[in-house]
């Protein structure tokens, strides 16, 4: 937080100014370092998730190692970039692009995996439920997306205010410029629509697999269309982006966190409990999946803070 503190005025209470400073930084696209750190840390979670899921599937295809290796690499370069290194920033961008490509490749392999199950697409529901999780590879790409965005931002201690003075203002559509200035609200809102659909769909069929045994399993399924609608409406409407989207996003983050608790409890409640923790994490409820759902809320929250693209 040292880079925020430098700009703090002498009279205002420290915490309040910090929050405002962070808010301003995000609005103005000056949060490259925290974004890189966020990408790196969230990559640990998705790496663990994909690690045990692919372990469970026996790494039957060598390509299944790639997301595990890439998530480790992304964590490394994310942390590196968060120290403000220019080389780290470049590495973060490259690693993020490779990871995004890997995640699209993963989508292909997961679709093929479902198709290859006995009955294939003739038995879609059971094979989606029992086959490789169809949208998981795209959700895995979330941290890479954050990393890629982050690599185009300005550092928290970048000079200048709302407008980046270091770059000549090009009239028209210069997306790099807009990213640098935090003017990409509609873009993140659109990504939020897509990602919450993927995550909500995963929640729907996984909970359907469990016959919605607990009523709380309906919450992500019901929350998904609400978040999607709020994020979609944020594209044309600034008011919804500023007033409704943050509220829905915070509810989503809270729901994801509650889900994380329930999934962890589900793991602990399995026979053998923590004594067989590896086995129980592998075969119990996917422990980090609710956090991926919460990550969609984080994207929505990010969108609501950002500035809108110039007309």
């Amino acid at each position: 937080m040292q880079f925020f503190a430098e700009r703090r005025g002498p009279e205002t209470p420290a915490i309040e100014t910090d929050v405002e400073a962070i808010y301003d930084d995000i609005r103005e696209g000056r949060f490259e370092r925290s974004m890189a750190l966020l990408a790196g840390l969230s990559s640990i979670l998705s790496g663990l998730e994909v690690g045990y899921e692919h372990y469970r599937a026996g790494y039957g295809n060598p390509i299944m190692y790639t997301p595990v290796l890439l998530s480790g690499a992304l964590t490394g370069v994310g942390v590196w970039a968060s120290f403000g290194s220019k080389a780290g920033r470049k590495a973060l961008r490259i690693t993020s692009v490779i990871t995004l490509l890997d995640s699209v490749t993963g989508l292909y392999f997961h679709i093929r995996g479902i198709q290859r199950k006995p009955g294939g697409w003739r038995i879609p529901i059971v094979n989606i439920v029992m086959g490789p999780p169809i949208f998981a590879p795209l959700l895995f790409g979330t941290s890479a997306y954050l990393g890629l965005i982050g690599s185009y931002m300005r550092r928290e201690d970048a000079p200048g205010g709302a407008v980046d003075v270091s770059m000549p203002r090009v009239s028209g559509l210069n997306w790099k410029q807009e990213l640098r200035e935090g003017r990409f609200q509609k873009h993140v809102a659109a990504i939020t629509v897509l990602w919450s659909f993927f995550s909500g769909f995963e929640a729907w069929y996984s909970h359907y697999k469990n016959n919605f045994k607990y009523k709380v399993q309906w919450t992500p399924v019901l929350l998904t269309p609400v978040l999607m609608a709020a994020a979609a409406a944020s594209i044309p409407s600034r008011t919804i982006a500023k007033k409704i989207l943050p509220a829905v996003s915070i509810i989503t983050i809270a729901d994801g966190s509650i889900g994380f608790y329930y999934h962890a409890r589900g793991v602990v409640r399995r026979p053998g409990s923590l004594k067989k923790w590896i086995y129980n994490i592998m075969y119990g409820p996917p422990i980090f999946a609710p956090l991926l759902f919460a990550a969609c809320g984080t994207l929505g929250l990010l969108a609501s803070i950002l500035r809108r693209e110039p007309k």
């Binding site: 006995p118 009955g119 038995i123 059971v126 439920v129 029992m130 359907y208 469990n210 016959n211």
Partner: peptide, 16 residues
């Protein structure tokens, strides 16, 4: 059970 199989294999929940 072939090729569809069972998906609710835990907790005694019925298949759809």
């Amino acid at each position: 059970a072939y090729p569809r199989g069972y998906m609710r294999v835990e907790g005694g929940e019925p298949e759809p």
